[in-house]
Nucleic acid binder design. Structure first.
Length: 277
DNA sequence: AAGTTCACCTGATGGC
DNA sequence: TGCCATCAGGTGAACT
């Protein structure tokens, strides 16, 4: 579910509400997430004060005092919801953090997410963070750096772009969308992109992600803002979830294309075979 | 090393 | 109505 724009949206919301706030107490209702939550978790986070909410790829990093950091990944169906103190516990609410006048609820239907507390200095020793690729919205992510990280990659470009060690934060929706905008077939070998194509792909990755952040992300099914509302970017999607429809480019050019759905690595890929070569 | 397949989990949807 | 198969925005382990 949540890719970079969705996680960034939640980051901004949590940062605005929780910075400077203290976790009065916490409760774990189900500890079976991707990694089991240790029994000491609730006691360990109680009393920590939020200093800053950061994002790296699809991970949220909540930095607190006492040199601690909460690491959160929303998996496929994770949500972080800010609720009033008197709100009721709902189905799939697994962890509740109580603040002075709010509570932060971690809800996750499929329980593929991650919630863990680390010492600040050990955080970046975690494999996923240590090996994470470039942030696509940073200035040092360029056509050249993208091409360099794709060097020697024989897997399809679609698969490469989903690899978080190649580039951080892209998921199935935005990979499909960026490849469409750049006119590149998802079937192309990763290292087959020319200098010009890498430049174009880099440009559209930045564009699609930043436009989606502006719209508060994409709610295709489960994703929600921290107030429970939906992300508005879904209406801007060109190919994802649009199998059978005529693509906007073909429509403009009056050619006979249609968006098709294929399977790559066990996941759906949407693209226009006429436009994307 | 890098590519591929599969498991993890719940719920929605569609065919019979 | 029920039952079954399939699919879903992610990732990491275990194969080749």
């Amino acid at each position: 579910m949540p890719e970079l724009p969705e996680v960034e949206t939640v980051r901004k919301e949590l940062s605005a509400v929780l910075t400077g706030q203290r976790i009065e107490s916490a409760a774990v209702y189900c500890n079976r997430l991707r990694n089991p939550i240790p029994d000491s978790f609730a006691a360990d986070v109680a009393g920590l004060t939020v200093h800053e909410v950061q994002r790296r790829g699809k991970y949220l990093i909540i930095l607190t005092d006492k040199e601690k950091a909460l690491l959160i990944h929303l998996g496929m169906t994770g949500k972080l919801l800010l609720k009033s103190k008197d709100s009721q516990l709902e189905k799939h609410d697994h962890i509740v953090f109580d603040f002075a006048d709010k509570k932060l609820v971690y809800n996750d239907i499929r329980r593929f997410g991650v919630v863990a507390l680390y010492d600040k200095d050990s955080l970046y020793r975690i494999k996923a963070l240590r090996e994470m690729g470039q942030e696509p919205l940073s200035d040092d992510f360029t056509g050249d750096s993208l091409r360099a990280s794709l060097k020697g990659r024989k897997a399809p470009i679609k698969i490469c772009l989903l690899d978080q060690t190649v580039i951080a934060g892209l998921g199935n929706i935005y990979v499909c969308e960026a490849l469409f905008k750049a006119g590149i077939s998802p079937l192309r070998q990763g290292d087959s992109l020319t200098e010009k194509e890498s430049e174009l792909l880099c440009y559209y990755i930045k564009e699609i992600l930043s436009e989606s952040v502006k719209a508060g992300g994409t709610t295709f099914r489960d994703y929600r803002h921290s107030d429970g509302s939906k992300g508005e970017f879904v209406s801007h999607l060109s190919v994802y979830g649009r199998a059978g429809q005529v693509c906007s480019w073909c429509n403009l050019k009056d050619s006979c294309g249609g968006i098709v759905k294929i399977n790559q690595g066990g996941r759906g890929t949407f693209y226009c075979p006429v436009l994307q070569k």
